[in-house]
């Protein structure tokens, strides 16, 4: 355990160095990546809001100083020009550390009972090996959820991202039954967490959520817009999740960067339930050359989280 922590820290250090350099490169190349964050005009409004600090603590900060550039509802219907986003998830490296889930929940101001990212313990058949399976929204290229929406509240953008406009959604939940991957979640009541974010609503920011509407993983378009990878990607200590632009043929997990086509062909990448014809934008690398035993995924889990896997074939067999 000790050793692993050290290793993690080393990894983190390494990641940091890379990131520092990347930021520098951005400046050298054109400055666009950095410039997008700069907001010199922000002024203090006197109104304080609670925010999460970098240490994961809550502290009060002036409201006027909290801005990530947030685009309007109209703009959020347009994708980033010339982009087509793709995610690759390396099942060989996942050990259900759940950092992706937690970072996603924090980033999107989600209540504890809503998760955009879920981690399944799948076992395809009795004799095959079980594996951890993180599942975001697949942002399908033939999204049934969008097809069935009666009011156009959920839509697909030119950059491939499927978003939900929580101010349009009527809460019929048809998209939830339409999605064969059980990706969408419903706000069954009003959650306090929805109030944390006081900014004008933008479907790109995905929050604050609204009672009686549907939400889901959104590929963090607000982060993408400023040249950052989604929360789950940067949070994963194992670098399981890669993200990038498929037209650019590149994906990164924040530490390593690969040619997408090469990665998929070398590692036999596939899409989950291809047979359904939904054409997902999330690819999986098969769970080979495992870095962790499946059991490790139960290691540091909260009892309550552990409980969630008690009905899986694996748990039934190993922890009777």
């Amino acid at each position: 355990m000790e050793e692993e922590t050290n290793k993690n820290q080393k990894n983190t250090r390494r990641q940091f160095l890379k990131k520092g350099l990347i930021a520098g490169a951005g400046v050298a190349v054109g400055g666009s990546l950095i410039a997008a964050y700069v907001d010199a005009t922000a002024t203090e409004t006197g109104e304080k809001v609670k925010v999460l600090t970098t240490d994961g603590e809550i502290m009060e900060v002036d409201k006027g100083l909290l801005k990530l550039p947030r685009v309007s509802r109209e703009e959020s219907h347009q994708g980033l020009p010339g982009r087509k986003f793709v995610m690759v998830i390396d099942l060989g490296k996942c050990k259900n550390a759940r950092k992706c889930v937690e970072a996603c929940q924090k980033g999107h101001h989600l209540p504890k009972s809503q998760e955009f990212m879920k981690v399944y313990l799948l076992q395809d058949s009795e004799k095959t090996s079980p594996y951890w399976f993180p599942k975001p929204c697949f942002h399908c290229d033939n999204p049934l959820c969008v097809s069935v929406c009666p009011v156009g509240a959920t839509y697909k953008r030119s950059d491939g991202i499927v978003l939900i406009d929580n101010e349009r959604c009527i809460g019929c939940k048809f998209c939830m039954t339409g999605c064969p991957y059980s990706t969408r979640v419903f706000a069954w009541k009003h959650y306090e967490e929805f109030e944390q974010d006081k900014e004008p609503y933008s479907p790109e920011a995905g929050s604050p959520g609204k009672e009686g509407t549907v939400s889901k993983c959104d590929f963090c378009p607000d982060l993408i817009r400023v040249g950052k990878v989604p929360y789950c990607v940067s949070a994963c200590p194992m670098g399981v999740i890669y993200f990038g632009d498929v037209d650019e043929d590149t994906v990164t997990n924040g530490t390593e960067t690969f040619q997408f086509s090469k990665l998929i062909s070398d590692r036999a990448g596939y899409r989950y339930l291809e047979v359904l014809g939904t054409r997902p934008c999330v690819y999986y690398l098969p769970p080979v050359e495992r870095q962790f035993e499946v059991d490790r995924g139960f290691g540091d889990l909260d009892e309550k989280i552990k409980e969630r896997y008690k009905d899986t074939p694996y748990s039934k067999k190993h922890n009777p």
Binding site: K228, F243, E248, T250, T252, G254, T257, Q259
Partner: peptide, 10 residues
């Protein structure tokens, strides 16, 4: 490297 949207491709 080749610079890409989120990172540098070595």
């Amino acid at each position: 490297y080749i610079p890409r949207i989120f990172s540098l491709l070595k």
